[in-house]
């Protein structure tokens, strides 16, 4: 009847609510009215097809006034806010990025935890050698053996910008903050992952050997 508990058909365990990794929860605002109040109607920016071109130079030129403003704020507050166009620069060599984005190696254990966290989003699409969770995606290759198939350098570029390997890929570029359309206010100007998080995940993926 109407009052019964809503069991799920897929097994004994209830599924994690979809909002943990999909839909409304991601915006951290559950209440539709509240969401509405917080929504800003802003026009769309450059089309997604403009991706691949790093826009830092273009941005520096047009945003020189905001750079001055940031300098003023910094000299008052003694802290420079992290800005989108100040992602750590990196250098592609062949089909990879050989050097660590942070200058030091990542921590594989932390990387594993990150890959499994829904908020990191890998597990939405990928599966892998993760017996502890049934909630894995199948939109993308299983990550088992990724460390055999790819070098750390290739894995790093794949995470930073998968569209370099396949322009049509659905895999997001985790270390990019430009060339995107209508990014939500909470996420605007930020890469999906930090340089340190990328390094932890690269370190973990490199351990995935058959």
């Amino acid at each position: 009847m109407l009052g019964r508990a809503y069991g799920h058909e897929q097994g004994a365990l209830p599924p994690p609510p979809a909002w943990e990794g999909w839909g409304e929860g991601v915006s951290t605002r559950e209440n539709p009215q509240e969401e509405k109040a917080l929504t800003l109607a802003f026009g769309s920016t450059s089309p997604a097809s403009g991706r691949g071109k790093r826009s830092s130079r273009r941005r520096r030129a047009t945003h020189s006034t905001s750079a001055i403003a940031a300098f003023l704020v910094a000299s008052l507050a003694f802290a420079l806010p992290t800005k989108a166009d100040e992602l750590t620069p990196y250098k592609n060599v062949g089909d990879g990025i050989p050097a660590s984005l942070t200058g030091s190696p990542g921590d594989a254990a932390r990387g594993r935890a990150l890959v499994l966290a829904r908020s990191t989003t890998c597990i939405l699409c990928h599966s892998g050698p993760f017996p502890e969770t049934r909630f894995q995606g199948d939109l993308a290759p299983d990550l088992t053996g990724a460390g055999n198939r790819w070098t750390a350098s290739q894995l790093r570029l794949r995470l930073v910008d998968a569209s370099r390997f396949n322009a049509e890929t659905i895999m997001p570029s985790y270390y990019r903050a430009d060339g995107l359309v209508r990014v939500g206010r909470n996420f605007a100007g930020k890469p999906i992952l930090s340089a340190a998080e990328i390094e932890d995940i690269v370190a973990f993926l490199a351990t995935l050997r058959d």
């Binding site: 605002r29 539709p32 929504t39 939500g184």
Partner: peptide, 19 residues
């Protein structure tokens, strides 16, 4: 509501109700 929720899912700025 569903569409706005898919938009938040991809971390986009959802359009206003009735827009």
């Amino acid at each position: 509501r569903r569409l706005r929720s898919c938009m938040s899912g991809v971390r986009a700025q959802a359009y206003e109700y009735g827009s």
